[in-house]
Design a binder for these strands. Sequence first.
DNA 1: AAACAGTTTTGAAGCGCTTCATTTTCTGAA
DNA 2: TTCAGAAAATGAAGCGCTTCAAAACTGTTT
Lengths: 349, 349
Amino acid sequence: MPSKTPAPNGPVRLRDVAELAGVATGTVSNTINHPERVHPRTRKVVEDAIRTLGFVPNQQARVLTGAASSVIGLVVLDVESPFYMETAHALERAVRESDHVVMLCNSEGDLERESALLTMLAAQRVRGALLAPATPDPNSDRYVHLPGDLPVVLLDFDGGDQHCSVTVDNFSGGALAVRHLLELGHRRIAFLGGSPDLRQFAQRAAGARHAMTELGLDPDEHLTEISVSGIGIRDGQRAAELLLEAGTPDAIFCGNDMLAFGAYRALAGAGLSVPDDIALVGYDDIEFARDWVVPMTSIRQPIDELGQIAARLLLEHSAGDPAHTHRRVVLEPELVVRRSSDRRIDLRR
Amino acid sequence: MPSKTPAPNGPVRLRDVAELAGVATGTVSNTINHPERVHPRTRKVVEDAIRTLGFVPNQQARVLTGAASSVIGLVVLDVESPFYMETAHALERAVRESDHVVMLCNSEGDLERESALLTMLAAQRVRGALLAPATPDPNSDRYVHLPGDLPVVLLDFDGGDQHCSVTVDNFSGGALAVRHLLELGHRRIAFLGGSPDLRQFAQRAAGARHAMTELGLDPDEHLTEISVSGIGIRDGQRAAELLLEAGTPDAIFCGNDMLAFGAYRALAGAGLSVPDDIALVGYDDIEFARDWVVPMTSIRQPIDELGQIAARLLLEHSAGDPAHTHRRVVLEPELVVRRSSDRRIDLRR
DNA sequence: AAACAGTTTTGAAGCGCTTCATTTTCTGAA
DNA sequence: TTCAGAAAATGAAGCGCTTCAAAACTGTTT
């Protein structure tokens, strides 16, 4: 005579454990979630049953009964970009201790896809999402309403008072780089940035201009700006080649490290030595920068801190505290001087 | 007089939509999942209600009622390794069309953590998981029993007849590289591999030896093997420096591209030219290989294919077909010749 | 032996959805 | 106008879990 068990196939259910242990389902649930409430003797029996059956509680069912999800979504523009990967990793480390996992999603810079992913995350009822927006428009209001009121923290994008956000000051970073080059005595500087309507690049360029003005130099005269559509090594190389045709500057400041690597290739190809003939500065300080053939001076984004703060904001926000107010945190980048801009520095570093 | 709605807080529920549209819950469910079953007029009303309320169905509840999850887990050793990232990306592309998303998890090479992640994925009742095992032991049986019978496909690890697996033939790749170097006339070759008890490196080294024997050369005489604990640029550099102290070989074959980049730095630092003084071959053909200062000859792993096949196997396996039998697919790597081993090739490529 | 105050255990209700046997409504032919 | 059959809409049951009021046990005190 079959018991109440409808079908013994599929994964083991809590009820199966209860049956084997000879207790009620509530007791099994309690030994898992409130062990102190159940008698040690019973607890032992239940735990044994769990082990013999290899029971793994269905998280979906749990969440359905009100438990908070332990999944955090992260939507980035490009999973292959070292910067975003390092961010993902930092975030993961940050949420690890609170037993959360990161679900990494790739919007590929496509707004449609970005929306689809956010909806998907909302449908999964994840705890919340970190979003590095794909919009180039810094004032876009497309993030005001998010599907199924997903708790969101924006990365590298100012959320106004609609959302929490964590950004790194690009303007300040651009200024940092150019100030450094000016201090070294360079006067003809080129800024090699990605597509000019990507927020980050525009802000870095503005910072670069500011650093010049600050010292009483006219940017129009001393700063050549050149922009590329892509942001990869190839793009940097091509742009730098173009730049060289119009004359050799004293220094090139690139909008990111990949572009700087490309510029390096162009310079090496033209027989120019870095840093002897020309100084080179990148941005992001990805791992490769340190280990590039000539170690690359770069602007470091405080990625670990960014991950930690973003995680904290998100967990706080998604805890459902009605008193929560949106906060924006702006982090300061840091100049890391290496050989590519300063010949006094050991080649190895 | 309050209606049956218990609490209008939290996300919008299907029932809220039904109420607003003035229909039964079943009808709302049908307009979402079986639109053809509901009258166009009603459908319109319901769809409007969905839109005004911004309803996003709770995926957890859906899965609970038997729908297959749309999440696929991917557990890798190192999320910052370009090889795994490219794999993750390829996998993502592969499952995109079937509307699945990838949940990327980082085991950091830690067996404990790997287990924890697999349990977590089982608890989430994901559709299945791709696993790049952290065990160095190729015969480990720790993957025989997985938590909550999670459907799993192993990556880069032979699953025997317990699991499906997709691997790339490391032996063959090692042979490919060394054969290439021998054909170019090099006779004193060094193999610079990562920790010798990482399966992949051991197999590549074996392949290298085989290629020598094949040509009647004694590996003991012509092949110097040197291993490093790490697998990063720094490690490669240090190892190559050590190697140079004992004399300069004709060519260095590195167990991965990062090591090769490091070796390049060491060579450049010692004033040796690649490829004129010494040839260099990497492994994995990550994106950087093509764009390294001297474009790097490398062994390409067919990552796209790997992602596609793995995805297909997993979806098939997790479809629950009882007739499913575990398959192992072995992919062949490919030699990509670039400047670092062959001076006849244009510097730019 | 009865009364009491814990301490454990129980099991039904409910989370948001889908399914499906029923009921209701519509359609067109008789 | 009636009625069979198709089409559409209904709503209760159930997915696996947690919760919580109620029931069933302790053991201690009169």
